[in-house]
Computed example of a mutant assay.
Amino acid sequence: MRRTLDNPPTVAAPFGDRFAHVARVDLPGGALLMLAGQVAVDDDGHLVGPGDVVAQSERIFEIVEGVLAGHGAGLADVLHVRTFMTDLGDLPGYAGVRRRLFTAVPPPASTTVEVSRLFLPGALVEVEVAAAVTGRSAA
């Protein structure tokens, strides 16, 4: 078993490289990818879509797709989505984005919780995912 912490070049480095975007565990026949929580920031770390949960959700999944792509994976490889929201009243907007992106039946396993705040002022949602890729060599 090989473990790798990585910030792939397919996305901007997270806030001065203070954490890894992805933890990868290579196993016989594939790999498990555990992504760090992502918030809606541009490549310079500025909040995208202030006050707009749909815009923030779309940006978050753009980042998630970029991180996954850096390891030969895509949204179809996602096993679990964990979501933190500052207001569950925003759930319909977020859920609409999720439904558009995850079309498989059934969709990935999911956990969604409301939190009092996120680390980035103005962030309405933060998303973590776990994905599995099969038959691909280590990145």
Rank of each mutant, 00 (worst) to 15 (best):
M85P: 03
E65G: 15
M34I: 14
M85I: 12
R99N: 12
L35V: 11
L47E: 04
A109L: 11
D17W: 04
V39W: 02
V129H: 04
D44T: 14
T134R: 12
R98S: 10
T134F: 14
G51W: 13
F15P: 00
G96I: 06
R59M: 02
L88F: 10
R3F: 12
D17Y: 08
A138N: 03
M1N: 06
H46V: 04
F19Q: 05
L88K: 10
L91E: 11
L5F: 14
F119Y: 07
P107V: 04
L5Y: 14
V67C: 02
P106D: 05
T10H: 09
A76N: 08
V113P: 00
T111Y: 07
V127D: 00
A20I: 01
Q56V: 15
H80D: 08
A13Q: 11
L35Y: 03
R3H: 10
A132G: 02
D43K: 11
R98Y: 13
V48A: 02
Q56M: 13
G74H: 08
A20P: 02
G49Q: 05
R136K: 14
V39Q: 11
V129F: 09
G45K: 02
F19C: 08
A69S: 14
T86L: 06
D87T: 10
A123R: 08
L124K: 10
T103P: 03
A13G: 06
P28T: 11
V129I: 14
H46G: 00
A23L: 13
V127Q: 01
V105A: 11
D43H: 14
Y94L: 09
L47Y: 07
E62G: 01
V97Y: 13
T103F: 06
L68T: 05
H21Q: 07
F119N: 06
L101R: 15
R2Q: 10
A12C: 08
H80V: 10
D43F: 07
A69K: 12
V115S: 06
S116L: 12
G89L: 04
G29C: 12
M85H: 12
D6N: 09
H21G: 00
R136M: 02
V81S: 00
R2S: 09
A109R: 15
G49D: 03
A36P: 02
G16R: 13
V115C: 07
R18C: 07
A131I: 07
G30H: 08
G70W: 06
T103A: 13
R117P: 00
F102K: 02
A139H: 09
F102L: 03
A13P: 09
V53Y: 01
V64M: 00
H46Y: 07
V67S: 00
S110R: 15
A73G: 06
A73E: 01
A69Y: 07
E126G: 00
V129S: 04
S110F: 11
L88P: 02
P8D: 05
L120G: 05
L33I: 09
D43R: 15
L47P: 04
L91N: 03
G135K: 07
E58S: 13
G135E: 15
V78N: 01
E126I: 01
V133G: 03
A20L: 01
A12W: 05
F102Y: 12
D44M: 09
S57N: 02
D87L: 09
R3D: 01
D77V: 10
H21R: 14
F15M: 11
A139G: 13
R59A: 03
V67I: 15
A23F: 06
T83G: 01
E62M: 08
V22W: 04
M34P: 00
V133M: 03
F119G: 04
D17S: 08
T134K: 03
